[in-house]
């Protein structure tokens, strides 16, 4: 089962990669993702240094890798909203090396390149991000593009952005009163259609 998934994603990655695909690494047998053909060059803000528990080997060096699905304990109490419970840790984290993530085709990925893991499923979004239609630039608008990683904004375990309190709205000019915008409540197209049909029946 896992193999078919890996095979499929390897296909998608091959389709996305630059046409003269870089040769597969002899040791690992993985074809590295080298970016999109026409995307302007960019570098990604490193993420690894911002991780609280990094390096993970501090603890995990002394622990046996355990892939069984179990209740998570501190300090890794996470609720997997991402995928609505379909994933377990090792969909993204590498079982035998906790300092790395794992792409959907099994390729090991550094935390700094975590976008490759996200892009394995969210391909179109990843493409938009690489070309600049999604995501955020760090500084400047000029040629040197430094962009934030997916995980700078999205919590990988719960990626939906939470609603937040808005900043204060504009003040009302002295002497004026705030007027609620006029709402011309009209029936929607389908509601109008329904009432017309009723008329016909009558």
């Amino acid at each position: 089962m896992i193999r078919t998934v890996a095979g499929l994603t390897a296909l998608t990655f091959a389709a996305l990669a630059v046409p003269p695909v870089t040769a597969a690494d002899e040791e690992t047998g993985f074809t590295p993702f080298t970016g999109y053909a026409a995307a302007s060059e960019f570098s990604v803000v490193p993420r690894q240094g911002e991780l609280v528990f990094f390096p993970c080997s501090q603890c995990h060096e002394f622990m046996e890798p355990d892939a069984t699905i179990r209740e998570l304990m501190s300090p890794h109490e996470v609720e997997f909203k991402h995928g609505q419970g379909r994933f377990w840790c090792y969909a993204c984290h590498k079982l035998d090396n906790r300092e790395q993530l794992v792409a959907v085709n099994g390729e090991p990925v550094s935390f700094d390149d975590s976008h490759l893991v996200c892009g394995g499923c969210h391909g179109l979004r990843h493409k938009d991000w690489a070309f600049g239609a999604h995501g955020k630039r760090q500084t400047s608008w000029t040629e040197d593009r430094v962009i934030y990683n997916c995980t700078h904004c999205h919590d990988a375990h719960d990626p939906v952005i939470k609603p937040r309190e808005p900043m204060a709205g504009p003040g009302v000019r002295t002497g004026l009163e705030r007027v609620a915008p006029e709402r011309h409540e009209k029936p929607k197209v389908w509601q109008r259609r329904d009432s017309q049909e009723q008329k016909h029946e009558q």
Partner: peptide, 10 residues
């Protein structure tokens, strides 16, 4: 019908 004074909790 647009409102730029909106001020909900979130």
């Amino acid at each position: 019908e647009a409102d730029h004074y909106y001020d909900p909790d979130t």
